[in-house]
């Protein structure tokens, strides 16, 4: 059974593409056959983050419009053979994204035996974002510990509840997960940013991961390496935990500030 997972947020710049890249890579590293699709037509980025921009010949829109076969457009990741990337078009308009075309591509990916289709949504609530969530079985809502990002995430959850195919057909609702990125425990504890518990209370969906703010993220983007592969960095470990939780493992949330406390305090819950 192929599962379609949309990575979305409403607000721009919160880390959707970074999260999509690490999440898809994480699934692939765990042996899941995964396709990750960039829905940000006209502003493609995912291929850069995954470091395959030079190998993109055909894109998602070429496939939808019948100019290329899906197998020609899918770019195999150079690190994991389980991961394939379908880049967005840099030149076409987002109106080229038609529901029937998207569905046909998904159906073909199902036939090809993919376990997961990860849809990297553009920001906003227009065609690209709506198409990205249209066929979703699960949604990863990415937000920052900041009120405007949380409000947009909330709005996006409402749209998933009303505009997804599952909602329209009255099927079991889209399973929603929360990922908080750019988290700085020290500032959250001082009340300078929202705490993860506040964000969760406001959005009322389970937390899949809290990714700490990290310099590694920028370096990885520029090098075209998914953050999850930045060995040893807290952000990489947090993404790894997130993927594990998504696949059903029970892992406690880390990097929430307790690590900085003295050992005895951690042991005895000070």
């Amino acid at each position: 059974m192929t599962r379609v997972v949309v990575v979305t947020s409403g607000k721009g710049g919160v880390g959707k593409t970074t999260t999509s890249a690490s999440f898809a890579s994480g699934l692939a590293m765990r042996g899941k056959k995964t396709a990750v699709i960039d829905f940000d037509i006209g502003l493609r980025n995912l291929d850069l983050i995954l470091g395959c921009e030079r190998r993109v010949v055909y894109d998602f829109i070429n496939v939808i419009q019948g100019d290329a076969k899906l197998s020609q457009a899918l770019v195999r990741d150079k690190r994991s053979e389980n991961l394939s990337i379908l880049a967005a078009s840099q030149t076409k308009d987002k109106d080229a994204l038609k529901e029937g075309g998207v569905k046909a591509v998904f159906d073909e990916l199902r036939d090809m035996g993919f376990d997961y289709i990860v849809c990297d949504s553009p920001a906003g609530i227009e065609t690209g974002a709506l198409m990205a969530l249209r066929f979703a079985d699960e949604a990863i809502v990415v937000t920052n510990p900041e009120v405007s990002a949380v409000r947009d995430a909330d709005r996006m959850l409402g749209i998933i509840d009303s505009k997804s195919l599952r909602a329209e057909q009255g099927l079991e609702p889209v399973k929603e997960h929360l990922v908080i990125t750019r988290y700085v425990p020290k500032r959250a504890n001082k009340g300078e940013m929202l705490g993860h518990a506040d964000v969760q209370e406001l959005l009322n969906i389970p937390i899949l991961g809290v990714i700490p703010e990290s310099e590694v993220v920028l370096e990885c983007s520029n090098q075209g390496t998914p953050v999850i592969l930045a060995n040893g960095s807290p952000a990489a470990r947090a993404y790894d935990d997130m993927v594990a939780r998504f696949l059903g493992e029970d892992r406690p949330l880390k990097f929430l500030g307790a690590e900085g406390a003295p050992l005895w305090k951690r042991l005895f819950g000070g």
Binding site: D152, R155, G158, D161, S162
Partner: peptide, 8 residues
């Protein structure tokens, strides 16, 4: 019975 989101 379901959370009422921003905009709903």
């Amino acid at each position: 019975t379901r959370p009422l989101r921003s905009g709903q």
